[in-house]
């Protein structure tokens, strides 16, 4: 059972305060959100930071739910994902990992690169242009999640893709929120 200790150590080293792995549904994400909120209340986190962390968490978690539904409809049996919250003295990180089709990588990457290349004003304009033209997809998304995460966090989005097999890769996304602002 050394893995229990190893996992614990890994979480401590990465400053992770919450980790959820498995099936993501609206019901399970509500529990994750409630736990994270309680945690921030217990550490008397600054209201503004709390709001931003909550905001980014919701977009991130609902993204995973929508994506998992899509994978299931494509016949992917186990779209298990991971969600983590990290906290250091100066910032929070909201981390997500989920399988993505290799054929979608270019699209996701180009969207994230576009967002990371924009300043505050540019992100606002992008948000306004999307909200005016978007319709809610069958998955329930407005196509605004990444933009909103970048705006609310005030930092570029970190991302990586790790190859799982010929069809899928594991998409890792990280959003960083400065504390006490």
């Amino acid at each position: 059972m050394k893995y229990i200790y190893d996992l614990h150590q890994a979480m401590r080293q990465q400053n992770l305060i919450l980790l959820y792995e498995g099936e993501f549904t609206q019901e399970s994400i509500k529990s994750v959100l409630a736990m994270a909120e309680r945690n921030m209340d217990s550490t008397a986190e600054n209201q503004g930071t709390k709001r931003k962390v909550f905001n980014v968490m919701v977009e991130c978690l609902q993204n995973i739910v929508k994506h998992a539904d899509e994978l299931i409809s494509e016949g992917y049996a186990d779209p298990s994902a991971i969600f983590m919250i990290g906290r250091t003295d100066s910032y929070f990180t909201i981390n997500a990992g989920n399988p993505i089709k290799n054929s979608n990588i270019e699209y996701v990457k180009s969207k994230l690169e576009q967002i990371n290349g924009l300043d505050k004003e540019g992100l606002k304009e992008l948000y306004k242009s999307i909200i005016k033209s978007t319709t809610i997809s069958e998955k329930g998304g407005a196509g605004l999640g990444f933009v909103d995460m970048a705006r609310k966090s005030g930092n570029p989005l970190g991302f990586e893709f790790h190859k799982m097999n010929d069809e899928y890769s594991f998409f890792c996304l990280q959003s960083k929120i400065d504390r006490g602002i």
Partner: peptide, 12 residues
Amino acid sequence: EYFNTASSKLIL
């Protein structure tokens, strides 16, 4: 107090 992006489209 808070709304997500999918709600923002519907609020519009």
